[in-house]
Amino acid sequence: MPKNDHYVIIGNGPAGNAAADTLRASDKLARISIISDEMFTFYYRHRLPEFLTGALDADALTVRPYTVYKDNNVRMRLGQCVERIDPADKTLYLKHMEKVHYTKLLIATGGRAFTPPHLAPFRDSLCFMTRYTDALQLKPRIQDAQSILILGGDLISLNVQQQLLKAKKTVYFALNPDSFWPLKLTPEMAARIQKSLEKKGVASCVAGDIQDIACKKNGKLEVTLDSKCAFTVDLVGCFMGLTPNIEFILGSGIDTERGVLVDDRLRTNFPDVYACGDCAQIYNPALKDYWVSVGWHNAELQGRTAALNILGDTKVIKPLKQGVLEVEGLKVNTSWWKKF
């Protein structure tokens, strides 16, 4: 590789970091930059629920300190937001009006909290948490709150609920079986999860979707579900899965559907632009569907594979075999999620 190569990685999660490590291991001279709109170094996202309730402090979230990047000669650009990509010109436009040219680009921006469109009118009344910033903002509110309703549309919601119960909060749970992410729940599965949660201490677990949220004078929120159940709580947490973080790519010419469309070598439709991790969408022949993978392990695997292909290899991501995941005493088959 010529010395003036500039590998740019957008995203500072497991996929981006695994890719940076792999690139540096094989190419000692190239410039490597990681751009992240977050202000914090690489952290364990799945530990955020524990951080939220005070069970863990911020240091325990850190995967690696900033000095590691300095030692590896990887330029870390934190708090910088990519506004758009011009893949024909191999240029990134950052929000602070800077242009960054790249030789090869890896998009590893992960996912963010998904708000189902029908919940958009209630967005201001809902709490979300997918990033450290979200957790920092939410932490004092959680500590002040006594009662919390969790809109449970994903596995993260189950994790948060566990931590809230440990923190002696009154937890209500509204399970949305129609859009549980990344699994699809049958009525039987939903019923078993409901029963299991109530057994563990959840004050009430009902199936349903939000019909209305009204803010009362005392600051409490009155939530009505379509099943006509109503809860009066201090906070409503919305955990309806993740959606790929790809808004800045739209209109660039890079093909997207739910995520960035890539082939099994993690290449987008533009040469020298790759995507991996929770933001990449790959056709899975076993499932006969396009899938956005989730989970730390998959992200790292894809990050390493993408980096090798950036370096000229022809590694292929193979669909993982179906694994068995236990959710609230219920075993479900999943190709992607191994642990939560």
Binding site: P116, P117, H118, A120, L250, G251, D255, T256, E257, R258, L261, Y290
Partner: peptide, 26 residues
Amino acid sequence: KTEEFMPVDEHEIFEAKFEKVKIIGL
């Protein structure tokens, strides 16, 4: 194709999704 190539505006797509219509691409 995908939503990006739909000949309707974003607003129309949002309203349909708000009413719980699902769009299946590709």
